[in-house]
């Protein structure tokens, strides 16, 4: 079964997502890293800024482009104890989107609050 993380030290990780899904592999790679990393019992948050907010857009339908609709996996993150999903309010607004357009519950942060969020982290991974 799952082994205990041998290091024993819990660190705070934030995954920062700045790219739209499907056009490049960044978004999928980020999500897979989060899911695999979740087995190590670390404190994990995700932050969506710039085009990264499109990753959480609801009603994605990828059948016609013959890609996997991995956006559905964002709804499974809770089961992996990844419960902190932050979205930058300005990035949504600039793109004509609001919280209602997103497929999961998120916490909105202002652009000016992003630094404070990052200052609380031990490790920053950017995709």
């Amino acid at each position: 079964m799952e082994e205990e993380y041998a290091g024993g030290v819990e660190k705070k990780f934030i995954y920062i997502n700045r790219r739209a899904p499907h056009g490049t592999v960044y978004a999928l790679e980020s999500l897979e890293t989060v899911l695999i990393g979740a087995a190590f019992d670390q404190d994990v948050s995700m932050l969506f800024i710039d085009d990264g907010v499109y990753q959480l857009k609801k009603d994605q339908s990828t059948d016609s482009i013959e890609f996997k609709n991995f956006s559905k996996a964002f709804r499974a993150l809770e089961m992996y104890d990844v419960e902190k999903l932050f979205v930058e309010a300005e990035s949504l607004q600039e793109r004509g989107l609001s919280e209602d357009d997103l497929l999961v519950d998120v916490e909105l942060v202002k652009r000016g609050e992003v630094k404070d969020l990052i200052d609380q982290q031990d490790v920053v991974l950017s995709f």
């Binding site: 996997k68 991995f70 559905k72 499974a76 089961m79």
Partner: peptide, 11 residues
């Protein structure tokens, strides 16, 4: 079908 991923063993 629901999440497009296989669950972790823990899940």
């Amino acid at each position: 079908e629901e999440y497009q991923i296989a669950p972790a063993v823990r899940v």
